[in-house]
Simulated assay, not measured.
Amino acid sequence: MKSFHGRVVTPGLISAPALVSRGGVNTLASFQKALQFGDKMATCGDQNNTDLYGKEMAGKALCLPQTIGSTTGGLVLYCACAMKRQPACMLFSEPIDSLAGAGAILADVWLDEVKMPVIDSLGKDFLDFVKDGMLIEIKEDGVVEVK
């Protein structure tokens, strides 16, 4: 087990299996099937992300460096939360971008029944250590334990 400390963007305590992307995640391309075609498991549709393509993202601890792509990124995350197709949490090794941050914060504030904790600035060592399937636990104050 190893602990990492980041900055809390949206709070919450959670335990979920890790799903890791070493490259940036294009939220629109990744969640498009979930939002448009009713894929409740949010299978990643981004062919350019070989780490995630074809894998189910709903209910997983999505570990990534950053999000990339279109200006719809925040809205896509908000909609995934509103449709209950979001990752269990999002864990960024780098500081979160403003679009993903806006989507996560709006979902946290506006959606009563949905939680998607987000921690950023976990550092490069976090992505070097974590592997798909490892158990992730978010504790108080931005502490992330990887088992």
Score class of each variant (00 low, 15 high):
residue 91 L to M: 10
residue 143 V to E: 11
residue 4 F to G: 06
residue 62 L to A: 11
residue 98 S to R: 06
residue 70 S to H: 02
residue 46 D to R: 02
residue 72 T to G: 00
residue 112 D to N: 11
residue 144 V to Y: 10
residue 42 A to H: 14
residue 12 G to S: 07
residue 85 R to E: 00
residue 123 G to H: 06
residue 60 K to W: 04
residue 64 L to Q: 02
residue 65 P to C: 11
residue 90 M to W: 00
residue 61 A to Q: 06
residue 93 S to C: 10
residue 52 L to Y: 00
residue 94 E to P: 02
residue 20 V to R: 07
residue 116 M to D: 01
residue 36 Q to I: 02
residue 115 K to Q: 14
residue 24 G to E: 14
residue 57 M to T: 14
residue 30 S to L: 10
residue 97 D to L: 04
residue 124 K to W: 10
residue 35 L to Y: 13
residue 88 A to G: 07
residue 22 R to F: 02
residue 77 L to E: 01
residue 41 M to K: 15
residue 95 P to K: 12
residue 2 K to C: 05
residue 6 G to P: 05
residue 27 T to M: 02
residue 38 G to I: 11
residue 129 F to V: 11
residue 99 L to I: 10
residue 20 V to A: 00
residue 116 M to Y: 03
residue 90 M to G: 04
residue 131 K to Y: 03
residue 80 A to Q: 05
residue 66 Q to F: 09
residue 34 A to D: 04
residue 18 A to H: 05
residue 30 S to K: 02
residue 62 L to E: 01
residue 4 F to Y: 13
residue 21 S to K: 01
residue 10 T to H: 04
residue 4 F to Q: 10
residue 81 C to K: 01
residue 54 G to M: 03
residue 17 P to Q: 10
residue 4 F to A: 09
residue 62 L to C: 02
residue 122 L to P: 02
residue 50 T to E: 09
residue 143 V to I: 08
residue 2 K to V: 15
residue 97 D to E: 09
residue 29 A to R: 08
residue 11 P to C: 10
residue 85 R to A: 11
residue 71 T to D: 05
residue 129 F to C: 13
residue 64 L to T: 15
residue 40 K to C: 08
residue 122 L to I: 14
residue 126 F to E: 11
residue 54 G to E: 07
residue 132 D to C: 07
residue 69 G to N: 01
residue 99 L to H: 03
residue 144 V to Q: 12
residue 14 I to P: 08
residue 11 P to S: 09
residue 97 D to N: 09
residue 107 A to Q: 04
residue 117 P to H: 03
residue 18 A to I: 01
residue 91 L to Y: 04
residue 13 L to V: 14
residue 12 G to E: 08
residue 78 Y to C: 04
residue 44 C to V: 15
residue 25 V to E: 00
residue 6 G to Y: 10
residue 120 D to V: 06
residue 108 D to K: 00
residue 20 V to K: 08
residue 42 A to V: 15
residue 52 L to P: 01
residue 50 T to R: 07
residue 70 S to I: 07
residue 46 D to S: 06
